[in-house]
Write a protein that binds this DNA or RNA. Structure first.
Length: 646
RNA sequence: GCGGGUGUAGCUCAGUUGGUUAGAGCGCUGGCCUGUCACGCCAGAGGUCGCCGGUUCAAGUCCGGUCACUCGCGCCA
């Protein structure tokens, strides 16, 4: 160790290199070649050294990524955030046994000479592959036990293991890259929002429970026995209040908390939104403000993938449901659904004809270009799939070279079949599937079929980000079970046509200034022009069956704010996690979150949720009323009054 | 809450029609190896086949239940 730190060495950073110096690494001198004491841990990162550095004495710190032990010659790949550098030692060196005895993932500091590799030993796959470090001294900073999962290599591991040892998992290349991407995306979003004239404001994390929406996470109040804070499901009311306060353009990378069950694209508990709101704007102004931000961010990180240029296509909700069978159309899928009810009404295919006349059903047709030569078994398989997904079956017509085929073609009159073929613009060699049900159910099922057929026929466009807006959502809808008229989305959206529409139109025909941003079939965001007029709000809630007293009681805070001069305003809140997920091309949201919870909303590493002490509960005036414990309840998440309060 | 999938060594997986001592790769331990970069070679340790019950002469394999993880539905103004 004597040779290690005391000896002054020449500065490793020449002026040209200094500019690339990562944060936190100070040059060990003023870069004028004046000798200085070497930094305790590193003069360079593990991704930095090049052929031009040959001859310098340098110091690197990092993790032992891999070792190749030839008995009398030892290679160590040293890894840090920035890259890999090969270090080499031979048996004649004092430090050889130290390196040989250090397990992978131990943290070491090496000091040595930068050596040019001979032509045949250059590693072209490594940016630092022209050089290696001849190790003269080594310090073991931290030893590693035998690993529960390997950092080097790309073996897959079960997710609970990865989450339990997330700090190891995050060292691995792909997740590490995803988290860096996330950081860069958020920085790019901030820059672009500021360029658009938005300012970032914070809003409370401890707030009040709101009666609408998802289940809240509650936080008990110590000072107010029996009362609770709630974590915000979104800063919705606060951002509107900021508009009322005159701040004009607000944004925030906002944490949102909702106690709902997880999905592959929905993290349990918490997620982040690019929350923004603007005053004195129309719907078009909102679109014009956010489109360049989203398109710009996606282009910045697209790496060759095409991005829909602004302005994005705007698809009315009704059209989306008809043509794509979804309010979040995946425009990478070229198939377009059409309504073909008239061809079946009163026709020879009795099943559909009866449903149309008897139940008010409609028939939606999903084209399957080029599918005519698929074997019978393919159609049977899709039929079975349809049954698994709750449909009675999946009718189809095959347009073969020798005419229409299949059970429906046998029964439906030839001229009707031909008219249908003409409407759908199908050729010999194509096929078409049908969904027959009440309008909403038929649309949704046709949407499923559209997706399924697209995958089966391998027609999904790849390497693109296809954006669109879904606009003109209905303000109200009828609850199928109760017959009641309800808000279909956000009750605080402005109805199109304002008060007059509410007073004169059939509520089910009223549209809202409510819109979604969709990318590749993923709902990135919903948003709206808000209803800032108490009179219109009372009227809208009245249609949905709520009394003025109810509105006053539950939303009095907002209403009150709107009584002292509120600007017309609107905004949206694209999901950060989903944006990063799309850019990282990951199918699961947990791959772009540094410390996610598992599907049961547990943090396996921190053991949350955990028990708390009886004293803590008493201070909060809380007595537990627990369900009977299951026979074998152990491990993380067990709630006990006397548990691990540490 | 409901439905599908998975569960065999620390990890990834194989395991035939139910039939002798449950295998491979990675990792781990020991030995050999001076130009590798997924280094190589030799040897070794490591298993309640998720758990409980059943059928059977015999169960990793078949049946029932249960638990865990995961995907989906419900839920997500």
């Amino acid at each position: 160790m004597a040779a290690l730190t005391k000896r002054p060495v020449q500065c490793g950073f020449r002026p040209t290199v200094c500019r690339r110096r990562p944060p936190g690494i100070a040059p060990s001198s003023d870069c004028q070649g004046i000798p200085a004491v070497m930094h305790a841990f590193r003069t360079h990162t593990c991704g930095q050294l090049r052929r031009s550095d040959v001859g310098q004495t340098v110091r690197l710190s990092g993790w032992i990524h891999r070792k190749r032990d030839h008995g009398n010659l030892l290679f160590v790949d040293l890894r840090d955030h920035y890259g890999l550098t090969q270090c080499v030692a031979d048996v004649s060196s004092d430090i050889f046994p130290v390196l040989e005895g250090a397990r992978v993932e131990s943290v070491i500091t090496v000091t040595g000479r930068v050596i040019a590799r001979s032509e045949e030993t250059i590693n072209p796959r490594l940016p630092t592959g022209d050089v290696e470090i001849g190790v003269d001294a080594v310090t073991v900073q931290s030893t590693a036990d035998v690993l529960p999962l390997q950092v080097a290599g790309d073996q897959e591991y079960p997710e609970d293991l990865r989450l339990t040892y997330r700090f190891l998992d995050l060292r691995r290349e792909q997740v590490h890259r995803n988290i860096v991407l996330r950081s860069r995306v958020i920085t790019a979003i901030r820059q672009r929002m500021v360029e658009q004239g938005f300012l970032e404001y914070q809003t409370p994390i401890l707030t009040a429970s709101s009666p609408e929406g998802a289940r809240d996470f509650l936080v008990p109040s110590r000072l107010h026995p029996g009362r609770f804070y709630a974590l915000p499901q979104a800063p919705q009311q606060f951002k509107q209040l900021l508009m009322v306060s005159g701040f004009d353009r607000y944004f925030q990378i906002a944490p949102c908390f909702r106690d709902e069950d997880s999905r592959a694209d929905r993290s349990p508990g918490e997620f982040y939104q690019l929350d923004f709101e603007m005053s004195f704007v129309t719907q078009d102004d909102v679109f014009n403000a956010i489109e360049p931000v989203l398109a710009g961010v996606f282009e910045e990180f697209a790496e060759g993938r095409a991005v829909t240029p602004a302005p994005f296509p705007r698809i009315p909700f009704d059209e989306a449901m008809l043509k794509y069978g979804s309010d979040k159309p995946d425009l990478r899928n070229p198939l377009i659904i059409q309504d073909v009810t008239p061809h079946f009404q009163g026709g020879g295919f009795g099943l559909f004809a009866k449903l149309i006349d008897g139940k008010g059903a409609v028939v939606r047709a999903i084209p399957a270009p080029g599918a005519a030569d698929r074997p019978r078994g393919w159609y049977d398989k899709l039929n079975a799939w349809a049954r698994e997904n709750g449909a009675g079956g999946l009718g189809y017509i095959i347009f073969g070279e020798d005419g229409p085929k299949g059970p429906i073609a046998k029964n439906l009159e030839a001229d009707r079949v031909e008219a249908l073929r003409g409407q759908m613009d199908l050729k010999a060699g194509d096929a078409v599937f049908f969904a027959c049900d009440k309008p909403l159910a038929a649309a949704k099922f046709a949407g499923l079929v559209r997706t399924k057929v697209c995958i089966e026929l391998e027609m999904l466009e790849t390497g693109v980000f296809k954006f669109c807006w879904t606009v003109d959502f209905p303000m109200f809808e009828r609850n199928e079970d109760t017959g009641q008229i309800e808000f279909s989305h956000n009750p605080f959206s402005m109805p199109q046509g304002g008060l007059e529409a509410l007073e004169t139109m059939d509520p089910l025909d009223i549209k809202a200034f409510q819109y979604d941003i969709v990318c590749n079939g993923v709902e990135l965001s919903s948003g709206a022009i808000r209803n800032h007029r108490p009179d219109i709000m009372f009227k809208a809630f009245g249609i949905a069956g709520y009394s003025p007293e109810h509105v006053e009681e539950h939303f009095g805070g907002m209403l009150n704010a709107f009584r002292y001069g509120a600007p017309p305003h609107g905004g949206a809140a694209p999901g950060i996690d989903r944006i990063v997920m799309l850019l990282a091309d990951e199918p699961n949201i947990r791959e772009v979150i540094a410390f996610p919870m598992n599907g049961q909303a547990q943090d396996l590493m921190m053991q949350a949720p955990g028990g708390v002490s009886a004293a803590q509960l008493k201070e909060l005036h809380i007595a537990l009323d627990l369900p009977k414990p299951k026979p074998k309840a152990q491990g993380a998440g067990t709630v006990t009054a006397g548990g691990d309060a540490g």
